[in-house]
Design a binder for these strands. Structure first.
Lengths: 243, 243
DNA sequence: GACTGACTAATCAAATTTGACTAACGTGTC
DNA sequence: GACACGTTAGTCAAATTTGATTAGTCAGTC
């Protein structure tokens, strides 16, 4: 399973050990972990099992109350404690960008009419501001000193990310309202993305036109299929190409 | 598959149709889609197949060059075009928080020594600023007018999110340096998270102590296992509990 | 006292994801 | 020409994820 799930389950067992799966599940769900990590019921029981197989957890025993399903209780092994420390460290030291559900939308934004894009952006901004306010409100109201850090810092990070997204959305909104970019149904924009104009040329084996898509710092020298330039002169999957 | 993958593959086929899987794969990988969405080779071929089964795509034909594996070419059906529009719309109108790999770290931060937490935060800030600069640089250098929007806006959103995270990290850093919160090995903090002090009480069935973890706006009234208060008085999975 | 609805504790089939692997083909080079 | 190396095109077993479903318990209520 993903290292997030491993860390979360390991951490949860570590706190409450010995615990059984259902308790871990309730705990994790009470953290709203389903909203920022992959923790569906099945994932938890699976994590418990596979980490037991890997020697990170061990079964303390099983009990049964009435005719209910048996409960299996787990606790960390020494290995598990090591792995927990290691995963926690990794999480904090490795800087990873979160998987962003909006990215695909951005890459394909040109396929939307400008009016809708503008409307959607306005909606996103308003919505995000609402969520922002509500989160801030929770922080301000929150009094339990015991879970100060976990809850408040989580909320603060959420707010910070929201702020970032709101700022970006405003900028893009301004650009779109100013007529920047070419969206669906405009000028030379392609409506359905059918075979590109100019696709007549039989895609000659050009040597290696640079295709600078998000050429960032991290992970230099990947061995993945290197971008091959397409007919049309190294476009990055863009829709445009005047006929 | 996830709707991100569906949208991405559908969008890609839509642009280049008719295309075969390998081309979609190369294109998506050239978008660095693997970094912000689930697009491994297998996922793409699977998406192609299952969307064909669902009637969103149709096979145009197959060809073969020499003794290489056969290539199957796909294009959108009318259904597929509708689904594409619908997914794109959804992506833009539904405001979803990205799955954040740092959240588990925050929830479990108390299990780390303060010195390491501070060091890690400093490292994160420095690293993020570096990435930020590099992204900005790419934007400034980027001249291809054809893919202006896709590339630049993606980078701008990444930068905006980074800015948010950096701001948050600075704040938390300041708090930690000021001695706020109780981390591993400090005062009444629990070292290993073993059975809580006070766990002697056999977890009586308390009625319903509110357990306000990230009680935010969205999704009121979930039917998920509602937080059951634990022995120890409604702690939110926190580590603390003075003996 | 039967019924309703919520809670407990998982399980399982189906769908999805991963990424190493295959196997033919091209190109350069010694 | 033999060999290394990268590319093309996709496959497949294994691991993981999903979430509906099972099946019994319990508190309230009509």
């Amino acid at each position: 399973m993903s290292s997030s799930t491993r860390l979360l389950v390991l951490g949860c067992v570590r706190i409450f050990q010995p615990v059984h799966g259902y308790d871990v599940r309730r705990e994790l769900l009470s953290w709203r972990a389903g909203e920022w990590a992959n923790v569906a019921p099945g994932s938890i029981y699976n994590a418990l099992k596979s980490m037991t197989r890997d020697g990170l957890l061990e079964v303390v025993g099983t009990d049964q109350v009435g005719g209910r399903p048996e409960r299996t209780s787990y606790r960390l092994t020494t290995e598990g404690e090591k792995e927990f420390q290691s995963l926690l460290r990794d999480t904090w030291w490795r800087v990873e960008a979160p998987l962003d559900p909006l990215m695909p939308g951005i890459v394909l934004l040109w396929a939307m009419p400008r009016t809708e894009a503008i409307a959607a952006l306005k909606h996103r901004i308003a919505h995000s501001e609402g969520v922002r306010t509500s989160r801030q409100f929770v922080i301000d109201q929150y009094k339990d000193p015991m879970s100060e850090m976990q809850v408040k810092e989580m909320l603060r990070l959420m707010i910070a990310r929201l702020d970032g997204e709101i700022a970006w959305a405003r900028t893009l909104l301004a650009r779109l309202e100013a007529g920047e970019y070419e969206l669906a149904g405009e000028a030379g924009a392609l409506a359905t993305g059918g075979p590109r104009a100019g696709a007549a040329e039989p895609v000659p084996k050009v040597a290696s036109g640079a295709r600078a898509v998000a050429r960032s710092s991290s992970k230099a020298g990947r061995s993945a299929p290197p971008a091959k330039p397409r007919a049309g002169g190294g476009r990055a999957g863009g829709p445009k190409r005047r006929a």
